[in-house]
Simulated scan of single mutants.
Amino acid sequence: MPRRLVHRAAVAEVFVTDAMVLGEDHFLVGSQWPRDHALYHPDTHHRSDPLLLSETIRQALVYLAHWHYGVPLTHRFVGYDMDFEITDPGALCVGGLPLPVELEARWQWTDRRPPRRYGARIEAALSVGGRSCGRGSLRVVALDERSYRIIRGSVGGADSAVAAAAEEPRRCVEPTLVGRLRNKDSVLEPGPTANEWLLRPDPDHAILFDHPTDHLPLMVLLEGFRQLGHLTTHSEAPQPGGPAFTLVSAAVDCLAFGELDVPTRLVVLEDETAAEKRAERRLRLDALQGDALIASCASVWAPVRLAMAGERPVGLPVPCA
């Protein structure tokens, strides 16, 4: 898959492999998920990172827009909302080979005004080897450069915005506390109060900022929400055989552009009434710049049993020879 057709600069970050037409606005999209990844790595139970689903849906929408619907490659894509749900985590266990997944996708135009503006939504069902295991959707608008500059106003270029964001040194949370492996992958920094955090991604991060941008990308906001959710649900160190939590669904609404050179505060609220009645934890995570809400995420974290030392995770495929 050519990198430009999924808006990626690095070959290693291209997950969509091909697509075929099943009917009018109906497609089958193939993808290959890596056995390991610097950012979207498997968890301790060898399950694939759920954000691989959201990134694959994003790439599928961009690819179909260019390949099938003829949206110009020079158009800017702006996300409005995204949601995903993992219904069968066991189907997404990593084995001895990269994981081949399929998206059965349906396309819907929401605001089509060519050649300047193309608004669209994609709904996708996820399966592995015919085994249904999740779903998701994404709504975007693709704008020509003139239209994009009009809605962005007097915002400076990507280089100046990234430079401004990098002026202050990062003091991010230890990566293991937010479910990440490397210091550069942690995007959370303690905020001004005990209940607030700052979203401080590394502007030189090769995956979060795969190519220049003048605003916080949707996937960066989603990574911040995921890390804050992990920190919240794992505030106490789990014991072997005890409870842990994994992200099984998220719904993100983007209400405004997130500027790179403006502090972004993250706050979390939990439905405590629901928590008393259910095993899972339901968190609402908000991103604010100043007093303005720029994005909100409703997430569900389901309990999983920690694998005992030396125990093989249930459902883990036997590595191929």
Rank of each mutant, 00 (worst) to 15 (best):
Pro240Tyr: 00
Pro240Cys: 04
Ala237Phe: 04
Pro238Cys: 02
Val220Pro: 11
Thr273Gly: 14
Arg226Tyr: 02
Ala279Asp: 14
Leu260Cys: 11
Val252Thr: 15
Ala274Lys: 01
Arg226Val: 13
Asp261Ser: 12
Leu228Ile: 03
Cys254Pro: 08
Thr232Ala: 01
Ala244Gln: 13
Arg284His: 13
Val252Ala: 13
Glu223Val: 11
Cys254Lys: 09
Arg281Gln: 09
Leu269Asp: 15
Asp271Trp: 02
Lys277Ile: 13
Glu276Ile: 01
Ala275Gln: 01
Val252Trp: 06
Ala256Cys: 05
Leu260Trp: 04
Pro238Trp: 00
Leu266Val: 03
Leu221Gln: 12
Asp271Val: 10
Glu223Arg: 03
Glu280Pro: 10
His234Tyr: 04
Thr273Arg: 15
Gly229Phe: 03
Glu236Gly: 09
Leu260Glu: 00
Glu270Pro: 09
Val248Ser: 14
Ala274Thr: 08
Gly258Trp: 03
Glu276His: 05
Pro243Arg: 14
Gly229Arg: 00
Leu266Glu: 01
Glu223Gly: 11
Ser235Ile: 10
His230Phe: 15
Leu228Pro: 06
Phe257Ala: 09
Asp261Gly: 09
Phe257Pro: 11
Ala275Leu: 05
Lys277Glu: 11
Val220Gln: 03
Arg281Ala: 04
Ala244Leu: 14
Asp271His: 04
Pro263Met: 09
Lys277Asp: 07
Leu283Glu: 04
Pro240Met: 03
Leu221Pro: 10
Thr246His: 09
Ala279Gly: 15
His230Arg: 08
Glu236Met: 14
Pro238Glu: 06
Pro263Arg: 01
Arg278Ile: 08
Glu236Ser: 14
Pro243Val: 09
Leu247His: 01
Cys254Phe: 14
Ser235Phe: 07
Gln239Phe: 05
Gly229Cys: 05
Thr233His: 03
Glu280Arg: 07
Thr273His: 13
Arg226Pro: 14
Arg226Asn: 02
Val252Lys: 02
Glu259Asp: 15
Ala275His: 08
Leu255Ile: 07
Gln227Lys: 04
Arg281Ser: 09
Val268Glu: 05
Thr233Leu: 06
Leu222Asp: 07
Val262His: 11
Ala279Cys: 11
Arg278Val: 06
Thr232Glu: 07
Glu270Gly: 05
Leu228Phe: 00
Phe257His: 10
Leu222Gly: 10
Leu260Lys: 01
Asp261Arg: 00
Val267Trp: 00
Ala237Ile: 10
Asp253Met: 08
Thr273Phe: 11
His234Asn: 03
Ala250Pro: 11
Leu222Thr: 11
Ala251Leu: 08
Gly224Met: 06
Gln239Glu: 15
Cys254Leu: 15
Gly229His: 01
Asp261Ala: 07
Thr246Asp: 11
Arg282His: 15
Gly224Asn: 09
Leu247Arg: 00
Gly258Phe: 11
Glu236His: 10
Val220Asn: 03
Arg284Lys: 10
Leu255Gln: 12
Ser249Glu: 12
Leu269Arg: 13
Val220Asp: 10
Pro243Leu: 08
Asp261Asn: 07
Glu272Gly: 02
Leu221Thr: 06
Phe225His: 00
Leu283Arg: 01
Leu266Ala: 07
Ala244Tyr: 02
Thr233Phe: 04
Arg226Trp: 09
Thr264Met: 12
Asp261Val: 00
Glu272Gln: 12
Ala279Met: 14
Leu228Arg: 00
Glu223Lys: 00
Asp271Cys: 12
